[in-house]
Design a protein around this nucleic acid. Structure first.
Length: 255
DNA sequence: GCCAACGTTGGC
DNA sequence: GCCAACGTTGGC
C-alpha cells in the first residue's frame, strides 16, 4: 500500500537544531531515516504497516505552498527510532528505554520529483468538486473519487498516512502531466470554507514558523508521558547511524 | 467515562 | 501571525 509522509521544508529550530527537511534535502540525501515521529498512530504505521518497496508521496507541510513534491519508497522497514534516547536530540523522549522502544521509524528512498507538484490547494479543490473536470480526465473517475477520500483532505494532522493505490496513481499523474493549474482560483483569493466554531476552544497561541519552540521538559517523572508529543518527522541520512566514535558525517545538524 | 481545558498541527 | 482542528490530559 502507498503512503504519504509529511516533512517541513522551512527552517524551524527545535532545541537549537534545525529540523527542516525539504525535497531538495531529500534528493541530495537519497535515503533518509524518518525519525522524530512522536505520534502513536503514525508510529504504528511505520512499525507495522510499511513494507519494503512501498511507494511514498513526499509532502511539504507547514510552508507557503504545501503539496506533494516527490515520490519515494520504503527502503527499510520499521526499527526503533533511537533519536528518542538521545537527550540532546530535538525529539528526545525521556520515557522510552532501549529495552522496549516506544518510537519507530523507517528509511525512505527518494525516487523522483514531480514536475507539477500537486498542491494541497489542488487536492482540496478537487475534493470539493461534484464532477471530474475535463482538464484532468486522465486521472479517471476512480482516481477522482480516491482523491476525495484522501486523509490529507479529511484528516489533516496525521504526518504518516495511508493512501489508496488509486489516489496515489492519480496524484502521480497530476504531478507528471500537469494541466490542472487553471482549475484553481486565481491567487490572492482566500478561499477557505468557514470553519465551525467549537464551543470551548481555547488556543494557546503556539508557534509561528521559524520561532524557536521551547522543548518540552521531560525531567518530571510523573504522568501520562510520551503520548502527548506529536512531532513532525525530521529526517537524517541513513548513514548517520549511531557510531561508536561519534563521527559526524552530515552537515545537517542533528542530535 | 464524560467533557472542558490545554497544547500542538499546520493551513491560510 | 492567526487561529481552527483535534488529540490528549485530568478533574470530577
Amino acid at each position: 500500500m502507498p503512503w504519504l509522509m509529511k516533512a517541513e521544508p522551512d527552517s524551524r529550530v527545535v532545541k537549537g537544531k534545525d529540523v527542516k527537511f525539504s525535497v531538495d534535502d531529500f534528493e541530495k540525501l537519497g535515503v533518509s531515516q524518518w525519525d522524530g515521529v512522536r505520534n502513536h498512530e503514525a508510529k504504528k504505521i511505520m512499525k507495522e504497516k510499511m513494507k519494503l518497496g512501498d511507494k511514498v508521496l513526499f509532502y511539504h507541510s507547514n510552508t507557503k505552498v504545501p503539496g506533494v513534491f516527490a515520490i519515494a519508497e520504503v527502503a527499510r522497514e520499521g526499527y526503533p527510532d533511537y533519536t528518542a534516547w538521545d537527550e540532546s536530540h530535538p525529539y528526545f523522549d525521556a520515557k522510552t528505554s532501549k529495552d522496549s522502544p516506544t518510537w519507530f521509524m523507517v528509511d525512505v528512498r527518494f525516487i523522483e520529483r514531480l514536475t507539477h507538484p500537486p498542491t494541497l490547494a489542488l487536492i482540496k479543490h478537487l475534493a470539493s468538486l461534484p464532477t471530474l473536470p475535463d482538464e484532468i480526465s486522465f486521472i479517471g473517475q476512480g482516481g477522482f473519487e480516491a482523491i476525495k477520500a484522501m486523509q490529507l483532505v479529511n484528516r489533516g494532522r496525521l504526518s504518516v498516512q495511508p493512501v489508496e493505490q488509486a489516489a496515489y496513481d492519480a496524484v502521480v499523474l497530476l504531478g507528471t502531466q500537469g494541466g490542472w493549474e487553471e482549475l484553481l482560483p486565481k491567487t490572492g483569493g482566500k478561499k477557505q470554507a468557514p470553519r465551525g466554531k467549537r464551543k470551548a476552544d481555547v488556543n494557546g497561541d503556539s508557534e509561528a514558523k521559524a520561532e524557536v519552540k521551547p522543548q518540552v521538559d521531560h525531567s518530571e517523572p510523573l504522568g501520562k508521558e510520551e503520548q502527548r508529543k506529536t512531532k513532525k518527522a525530521r529526517v537524517v541520512k541513513a548513514e548517520d547511524l549511531p557510531v561508536p566514535d561519534g563521527v559526524r558525517r552530515s552537515k545537517r545538524t542533528k542530535r
